[in-house]
Structures are given as C-alpha cells and as structure tokens.
Design a protein around this nucleic acid. Structure first.
Lengths: 118, 118
DNA sequence: TTAGTTAGTATCAAAGAGGGAACCATGACT
DNA sequence: AGTCATGGTTCCCTCTTTGATACTAACTAA
C-alpha cells in the first residue's frame, strides 16, 4: 500500500528517545526543527511574511517539493501560519507564529554554542 | 569508488544553511546533536562515565554499529571523550566533555519549549 | 488561441541511512 | 583445542528521503 503521501513524516532519520523518556520534549523539539531546511525557513520568515515564491528565491537550492513539504510540516507543528488568498494566479503567504518566536532566543543560544565548534 | 566508510557522515539528512549564512553555527549545532541517538547518549552519559557495553544496556534498541557510529561522531565533534584501557578483554570508557556540559542548559530550554508542543 | 502566472502534485530514479548478521583480535579459563 | 568476553568492523539488503522533471488549475494578457 506504500502510502506515498508526498513524503511527509520520516522514520529512518527520526531522532530516538530513551526508554522511560520516550516523550522527552527534547526529541520532540528536535524532530520539529531538525528538518533539512527548517531552520533556514524559520530564519528567513523571522524578518516578516513572505509568499511561497519569495521564499524560494531566498533559498535557491531548495526544490519546490521540499519547500512545500517543509512548510507543511512547520505549519502542522504550529511554527508557521499559512494564508491562502483566493486569487488567480494563487497567492499564499507564510509567517512565523508565536511559538516560533518563543523558539528564537533558544536558537540564538544554540547558535552561540555552535560557534564554539571551530 | 563509493567509499563505504562504515556509514559515517550524512548528506540526505544534513541540515542546510542559507546563502551567506552557510557557516551559521545553528546548522552546525544541529548537525552535531541531530543524530538519531545522540541526545540519548548525551543524556545517559550526563550521569557519569560509562563503558561501551553499559551504554548499550541502557539503550537496548540501539545496534552496536549505530552506537559506535554515534559515539565516534560525538567524539569527533568534541562532545564526548573516549578512553581506551589496554586490557583484555578491551575496556573503553566514555564521558561527556565540558562542551557537552555547556550544551546541557540549552537542551533543557529546548526541552521546556518542546513541552509546549502538545 | 496561445502563452504566462503561481503554488502546488505526481511520478520516477538516485542517493543515503539503518538493521542484521558475520567476522576479528586478544588473552584467560576449562 | 575450544569457548567466552569486549569492543569493534565489514558487508549486504531494505526502506526512506531527496532530487529532477513533468503536469495541473484557473484566470489574464496578447
């Protein structure tokens, strides 16, 4: 049955948790921001609302499929909000949520920690 | 040439960075702790030095290959230190480094942020 | 009528990650 | 000689993830 579902979810690469710590929010958090392009998308959206095509232009190497996928997952996890305008051609705007804003300072700390890694 | 190299590194799953932000330490940090079992290993080693077999017993689902790989990467990135005792049978002890200890509070914050995710 | 626009989907193939099992060295014990 | 223990390594196979490409809807402009 294979359920193609356009490549959401994961498994091979999912971060594991410990016995008796299976719901440790760290693993939840990492699974939410650990996607291949997610921190970039969050970083870019931090400066303000953007529509799909604008995000693509700012991340030239991402494919349309990947961007769609990452945005869908970020939306599902409550980090970005998506607004569709019923126009032609279509217009869809993305922006970060309060939850993502709360994450920002932590990412900054992670950033300064990461800078110690040579 | 294919370079099997025992399955170190990654690529498909590597977190991407932005043009002009390619060395953003966030992506570095995430790549360092983002491995499938790394936060578990760090979590377990936080309580003190353990030898290889002991870690295995605490993470029953991990395979020997994976544990070796994750420990090697953590060591390479300066998060754990590895001490080999020239005995027979071999004894190898692992412990967290200062760098990993510095990371701890950030992981805790990430943890409390993650707990807001339902 | 044909082309152009945006935001996607669908499909196929390639690359990568992870599991399983087998193998290895060394010395002690039986 | 055969077995056990520890900490690995190697190979193969499968599943997942990613990339590339083509296709769609719906309306506008030429």
């Amino acid at each position: 049955m294979t359920k193609k579902q356009s490549g959401l979810s994961s498994k091979a690469n999912k971060i594991e948790s410990v016995e008796g710590l299976n719901d440790c929010p760290i693993t939840v958090a990492l699974s939410v921001i650990g996607g291949k392009w997610k921190v970039i998308v969050l970083y870019i959206l931090r400066d303000g609302t953007l529509r799909f095509g604008e995000i693509r232009k700012k991340i030239p190497k991402i494919t349309q499929k990947m961007l769609t996928q990452q945005l869908r997952e970020l939306e599902r996890d409550g980090l970005v909000s998506r607004e569709v305008f019923p126009e032609v051609p279509p217009r869809v705007e993305y922006s970060v949520t309060k939850l993502a804003e709360d994450l920002s300072p932590i990412l900054d700390q992670l950033c300064s920690w990461g800078s110690k890694l040579k």
